[in-house]
Amino acid sequence: MHFILQLTSEKDVNNRQSFLFTKRLIDIIGSIVGLIGLSPIMVWAAYKIKQEENGSPVFFIQERVGKNGKTFKMYKFRSMCMDAEQKLIELIDQNEVEGAMFKIKEDPRVTKIGKKLRKTSIDELPQLWNVLKGEMSLIGPRPSLPREFELYDEYDKQRLLVKPGCSGLWQVSGRNEIHFKGMVDLDIKYIKNQSILEDTKIIIKTILIITKPNGA
């Protein structure tokens, strides 16, 4: 049973202008530094993806639902086979997560290099471009798929009051053991208590998870 955390209104979330300005400034600086500093790793990832499946696209571009329900194109390094979306229909009954989210631990659609990219979160690095464009933030709720959003109730929709993030409270809280409603609870908890200090703590935890993968 999840705990109810009802936000007062969208106005309450967006009324902290100094915080939002600082957060956006950090997003811009962080994404630029990340795109430049991590470019050798991204070039290596692109090469490995091409090497495994010659002629295949390097990036996986997918529509996601962002702040206030606005959709955008999210970028990732492709970690699944070319027909992953078609094969999803065959796997949907194997979903291991309750609620509006699909996840199985041993997804047969993941490629050999894709497993390495996911384990180290390298597949997520192209999202820094989404951050620079202002569609995402470094820290925030996981961006929803349109098919997931269609199943949201009013409580779930509260997580869309802020920009989705590359990482967030759910991602650093042992996400494999947390069901959908638990994820929503954590997202709303983050939104109610968001601060630069909280974002900094999540960034540090994210770096620790990436450098010492523990299956989260």
Score class of each variant (00 low, 15 high):
1 M>E: 13
1 M>D: 10
4 I>S: 00
5 L>Y: 15
6 Q>T: 03
8 T>F: 11
9 S>E: 11
9 S>W: 08
9 S>Q: 13
10 E>W: 08
12 D>T: 09
12 D>A: 14
14 N>C: 13
14 N>D: 14
19 F>T: 10
21 F>E: 08
22 T>Y: 15
26 I>C: 12
26 I>N: 07
27 D>Q: 12
29 I>L: 13
31 S>Q: 10
31 S>H: 09
34 G>E: 10
36 I>T: 12
37 G>L: 01
37 G>V: 05
37 G>E: 05
41 I>P: 01
44 W>K: 01
45 A>P: 00
46 A>K: 06
48 K>L: 08
50 K>S: 13
52 E>M: 06
53 E>S: 13
53 E>L: 10
59 F>D: 00
62 Q>F: 04
65 V>M: 05
65 V>N: 07
65 V>W: 10
67 K>L: 13
68 N>F: 15
71 T>M: 11
78 R>T: 03
78 R>I: 02
80 M>F: 07
81 C>Q: 13
84 A>C: 01
86 Q>D: 13
86 Q>R: 14
92 I>V: 13
93 D>F: 05
97 V>H: 10
98 E>V: 11
99 G>F: 03
107 D>A: 05
111 T>N: 07
114 G>N: 07
121 S>R: 15
124 E>V: 00
128 L>N: 02
130 N>A: 04
132 L>I: 01
136 M>L: 09
137 S>W: 03
139 I>A: 09
139 I>L: 08
149 F>G: 14
151 L>N: 14
152 Y>H: 10
152 Y>V: 14
157 K>V: 12
161 L>V: 09
162 V>R: 14
164 P>E: 03
167 S>W: 01
168 G>R: 11
168 G>Q: 11
172 V>K: 06
173 S>Q: 03
173 S>E: 04
175 R>P: 02
176 N>E: 15
180 F>H: 04
180 F>D: 05
180 F>K: 08
184 V>F: 08
187 D>T: 14
189 K>R: 01
189 K>L: 07
193 N>M: 03
193 N>P: 02
198 E>L: 15
199 D>A: 07
204 I>T: 15
206 T>R: 11
210 I>C: 09
211 T>F: 15
215 G>I: 02
